[in-house]
Each structure stands twice: as C-alpha cells, then as structure tokens.
Amino acid sequence: MKKVSQELDDQLLLYLDGQLNSAAREGFELALKQNDALRQRLAQLQEMETSMKKNIVEEPSKNFTQLVMQKLDHYQAPSSSFTMFNGILLLVGILLLTGIATVLVSSGVFDQATGTIDLNTIQLPKQYIQRSLPSISIDGKLVINVIILLNLGLGWVVFDRTILKPLFRRRMQMLR
C-alpha cells in the first residue's frame, strides 16, 4: 500500500477534528473516495483516537484520597539554606560593608586611587592591530561608588525576602 504524503496526513487530522471548511471537506472527501491508502490511514487514525479516548484515564488506588488526607500534616517544604536568620546575617554584613565603604569614600581614601591601562603595552600580533590603542583610565572612587550602589540593591532584595515578604504573608493570613 502506498504511503500517504505528510501534507495529506496533516489534512486527515484536520478532517478528523472537524477543522476543515465545507469546501475543503468536500474536496477531501472526494480524495478519500479515490485513494485507498488515504482511507486506510483514516481508519488507523480513527481507531487510535477511539482507543485513546476510551483508555486514557487511569484510576489510582481506592484509598488514594484517604492517604492524601493522612499525609497532609507530614509535608516538608523544600529545605532552603536561605532562612530568616541567614537572611538577617547577610543583611547585616551587607550594611556593614556598605557603611565602611561609604566612610572610606567620604574620607577621601580612594581619591588618589586612579590609574590607566595602556592597551598598547599588551603584546598582540602586529598584523591584527594597525592603529594605536586607547588607554583606559580607572577611577577608584567611581568603582567603589558602583560597588556601594550594587550592595544597596542586593541589601534591598535580601530585606524584601527576609523581612517584608514573610511579614506581609503573615498579615494576609491573619486577615483571612
């Protein structure tokens, strides 16, 4: 028996699902009358569909519900190392670090911490670089300020997760 083309096979499923418009359906039914392989494939698909619909649902054991109800109190939430205590410790650490960095920056410790990286000093194959490369200047004070800002962002996330979210969750539960 000749194999049905992918295009016709796709149309067969649309036909089975009733997704062809009337003109397309009539045309397809005509093709079905003239094509034995197509009719056979339709029968296969129909057989599969009927079997699947009849046999798809599987039943669990009779005491399933009873077991679930018994186990309700034995639930262990997935353990996370991010406990409230750890969160508060982390938050204190972040704030301490940010405070020290801020004091150091404001007292001018990093004012002289500047430098430049001259890219021309890096030994690279000459054939790839025809022009002279720029120098990158680094401002130590700016770098520390960026680190302080990142720390503050991180501190806010930790504060939200450790204190705000649990607090609001508890309040919502009390309101219910």
């Binding site: 649902v57 599987e58 039943e59 669990p60 399933f64 519900t65 679930v68 109800m69």
Partner: peptide, 12 residues
C-alpha cells in the same frame, strides 16, 4: 477530600 476525589484520576 472533595477536591482530591474530583481530580485524582486525571492527576494520577
């Protein structure tokens, strides 16, 4: 238990 009974077959 009402919800469990209702959805246990499909869940299983």
């Amino acid at each position: 238990s009402v919800l469990v009974n209702k959805y246990k077959s499909y869940a299983f």
